[in-house]
Amino acid sequence: MDKKKVLTGTAITALLLTALTAAPASPAASASSVAATAAPAVAPSGTVLGACGPGRLCLWPKSDFKGRPWTHELATTDIDSCVALPPGTSAQSLANRTGRPVTTYQSAECAETGEFETYPGRGTWVPQTAYEVRAFKLWER
């Protein structure tokens, strides 16, 4: 994967913590909510990152964190279970702040016959996925 497309690490985490503590708190959202949870941050490279609160997986319908994201909280999402996005929809960018690895799937059934990729938790922003994401699984560490 292109290193410019996946942004992780201590510098990003520090930058996001600064941005998140400056942002006003927002109400808790359910696993199927469609709402941003924090102000967008900017990476040291100047790339604008999507707004995604701690403990959440956020999936945007368009690349570069555009459109209204689907957010899923670790507390309300079953570990090791396939979670499909709403029928007829897909995501093209994501942020994983769950603290757990997440695998995204091209297949809405999490079939490994299509494309799939696993992203680490605790701060992974992907402005453009290699395929349209239709489902995901959160994993035990």
Rank of each mutant, 00 (worst) to 15 (best):
M1H: 06
K3P: 07
V6W: 02
L7C: 11
T10Q: 11
A11V: 11
I12Q: 08
T13M: 12
L17R: 15
A19P: 03
A19Q: 15
L20R: 13
A22W: 06
P24E: 14
A25S: 13
P27S: 05
P27M: 07
P27C: 09
P27L: 07
A29M: 06
A29G: 14
S30G: 14
S30R: 14
S32M: 04
S32F: 09
S33W: 03
V34Q: 14
A35S: 09
A36E: 15
A38R: 08
A39F: 08
A39I: 05
V42Q: 14
P44Y: 07
P44S: 14
S45Y: 05
V48E: 12
V48M: 13
A51Y: 00
A51S: 14
A51E: 05
C52K: 01
C52D: 01
C52S: 06
G53C: 05
L57C: 06
C58L: 06
W60D: 03
W60N: 02
P61L: 05
P61R: 04
P61W: 02
K62R: 12
S63A: 14
D64Y: 10
F65A: 02
G67W: 05
L74G: 03
L74H: 03
A75M: 05
T77N: 04
D78H: 09
S81W: 04
V83G: 02
V83R: 09
L85E: 02
P86D: 08
P87G: 02
P87Y: 01
S90Y: 04
S90D: 10
A91L: 00
A91Y: 00
Q92C: 05
A95S: 12
A95R: 08
N96D: 10
R97H: 10
T98Q: 00
T98Y: 00
G99M: 10
P101I: 01
V102H: 01
Y105G: 03
Y105C: 03
Q106Y: 07
E109T: 13
E109C: 08
E109N: 15
E109H: 08
C110W: 04
E112C: 10
E112G: 13
G114N: 13
E115I: 00
G123C: 07
T124E: 11
T129R: 03
T129Q: 13
V133K: 05
K137L: 02
K137V: 12
K137R: 15
L138R: 03
W139H: 15
E140I: 10
R141V: 09
R141C: 07
